[in-house]
Design a binder for these strands. Structure first.
Lengths: 124, 124
DNA sequence: CCCGAATATGCGTCCATGAACATGTTCCCT
DNA sequence: AGGGAACATGTTCATGGACGCATATTCGGG
């Protein structure tokens, strides 16, 4: 607690832009799946359709979001458009969040065990 | 591109749970602000109200989301409830995303300059 | 035991967003 | 030039989430 102090207004604004600029793009499992698929190299749209198991228009819309926010590169090659990962750091960040999730799951099962133990102790 | 290959189904599922479990909680500027405010130490609800400049009920709702997803701890102390950061790693992950945003902004202004230059070159 | 402070929750409303479908656009090929 | 393949985009519809307000709940003090 200590002093209530408003947070640095510059940080607040930066977080605003972060949410509207990047977080929103990461807030969908299909888009995350696309980014992870691009880890291993560029892919065409139709390939990504198969990866996320969605119709072409839906896939294109998700790609448009990632493209608009600057998270992927596009190159036209004949009839195909090839998407690639622009900021590999994004994957690192998401991997960090996956660690958090793993930690949290571990913590919960730890709590559960402790609860079971207390229950056992109390009922004995 | 190469082989289209569906992504590891386990990873897909994990990304699903990541989105519904953590990403959704991070997909709001006020909640991010709360987490950053808790970096420097625990805070009461009314303090956090001031930080995010929102009415109490709204603040409590955001806190409930962070609490349900396990991102914050709560301790009751008399009339107050004191919130603290449970997983500092979350901040690290978000900081990573901030770096990505900074990179992307730099890249764009770089592109803009190059465009201006080509324009100047072409028109001269 | 009741009152007020601090926090939580339920409800209604409004807006953002994802999915599906149809339609445009761009390119290659003949 | 025209047709087909690969993508992109517009529209509509349904859902989810944020907010405000009112209402519980929990706690400490008199």
């Amino acid at each position: 607690m200590h002093t209530a102090n408003a947070l640095d207004p510059y940080l607040r604004q930066e977080l605003d832009e972060l949410v509207s600029g990047i977080c929103k793009a990461l807030n969908d499992s299909k888009r995350l799946t696309i980014l992870y698929a691009l880890r291993s190299g560029p892919h065409t749209v139709s390939e990504l359709c198969e990866v996320i198991d969605a119709p072409q228009s839906n896939t294109s819309q998700h790609l448009a979001i990632l493209r608009d926010r600057g998270l992927v590169n596009t190159v036209r090659q004949g009839n195909n458009v090839i998407y690639s990962l622009r900021h590999p750091k994004v994957i690192e960040a998401v991997d960090f969040l996956r660690e958090v999730m793993a930690d949290e799951i571990a913590r919960r099962s730890g709590l559960r065990n402790r609860h079971e133990e207390s229950a056992r102790t109390l009922s004995s």
